[in-house]
Design a protein around this nucleic acid. Structure first.
Lengths: 213, 213
DNA sequence: CAAAGGCTATCGATCGATCGATCGAACGTC
DNA sequence: GACGTTCGATCGATCGATCGATAGCCTTTG
């Protein structure tokens, strides 16, 4: 069997949670989308909330791993931040559904289930914070409030998942580069773009998110 | 009576829809928050969806009116965009709940109810688009993809509602100015900041959103 | 007393979740 | 190689709880 039932349940949950929200998606909706009975669903998941938490867990782990791999051995903070931006944008453009679930439904989780998810998100954001702060310390970035700037730029990049369409006029590479430029300029970065290693980001995204890039 | 039941129902809906989502908020939750019985709610609203649509309608109309008033008679695209940014950020910082409802729950509405809401949002975004395009045409803004840039910057500014706290270290004025600077720089604007008329924005927000600024 | 505001009680529908039962493929055993 | 056994996968039926919404009766107020 090429596609297992377990994978169909996961895919159905990502799709429906993203488009109708967690509370807007019923057990029966999931069953229909996964081509199973509602009873059979429970062979592959715990509670509905467990399913949501697991989706967030794997999605964030994937993003965190990809970011670490993409920036490994990169000492220059400008290059590192541009790489983080390109990867973030690519991931959000390639897998918008997964991303919207993670971004929009976090505080639906019970505190016990939310805590490890938030920890993963914090670990990821720390990569951004470190790059920005190093750049400021090195004098290549200029911002009065690095923490605020980081949040603003992260929101900007995450927004891609809310509007980008691969059927639109903008190719993935252009999109990623455009965002890297926006971020560089917002940080008052005068040095040459030092173009992020887009090819490497694309390969990592292709590897982690499947062949869809 | 200082606070009418009708106002309490509205406030309860904004608060709960923002924090738990539309589908995550039950009629009984609304009733408890508004200090009414669930039956009495229906004296002040149609269906639950009507209530949601009405909240979006008034919130977007308020934002659109405020933006038009703030930019009226402003010919310089740089100054106009900075004003739009400052107003947007102030509004999202002062009324994050309302804003999150508008931003996150739009596609829960039935098509018939969604259409006028989307029209309002489009009218608002057009103010941004016009300022950006005029600036590009005048050579004071520099961006390869104005439409993409507009979406990116809008997402960045709307993100304020997802993290800003007035109990944090950053005052409203600093926040608004910081975002105006981020936007100016992202657009490659070299001219002096031409600082947006913050006082005027604050007054408009205070008038439209109540005395909370 | 009429209207407005508010309540209790209740409706049918749907919710998330669980039940016992069935199917077919794999597996050992003689 | 035929046969009982086991087990993962799936099902229809149904559970108690909760959903959004309504009907009808009090109470306050002008």
């Amino acid at each position: 069997m090429a596609v297992t039932s377990r994978e169909r349940v996961r895919a159905a949950a990502v799709k429906l949670f993203a488009s109708k929200g967690f509370h807007g998606t019923g057990i029966r909706d999931l069953a229909q989308e996964a081509e199973l009975s509602s009873a059979s669903l429970y062979h592959y998941m715990g509670t509905k909330e467990d399913l949501l938490a697991e989706i967030m867990h794997t999605a964030l782990n994937r993003l965190l791993d990809a970011a670490r791999e993409a920036t490994a051995g990169s000492a220059d903070p400008v290059h590192r931040l541009r790489t983080l931006v390109a990867l973030h944008v690519l991931a959000h453009a390639v897998g918008p559904a997964e991303t919207r679930v993670v971004d929009n439904e976090v505080d639906i989780l019970s505190p016990a289930a939310r805590e490890p998810v938030v920890a993963l998100r914090d670990a990821y954001e720390h990569l951004w914070a470190a790059a920005i702060e190093e750049g400021v310390a090195a004098g290549v970035f200029h911002t009065e409030h690095p923490a605020v700037t980081r949040l603003a730029l992260l929101e900007m990049c995450s927004g891609v998942a809310r509007w980008y369409s691969r059927r639109g006029p903008l190719a993935l590479d252009q999109l990623a580069e455009h965002y890297a430029d926006l971020v560089s300029r917002a940080l008052g970065c005068t040095s040459a773009p030092g173009v992020a290693d887009l090819r490497r980001c694309r390969e990592i995204v292709a590897k982690e998110w499947g062949m869809s890039v």
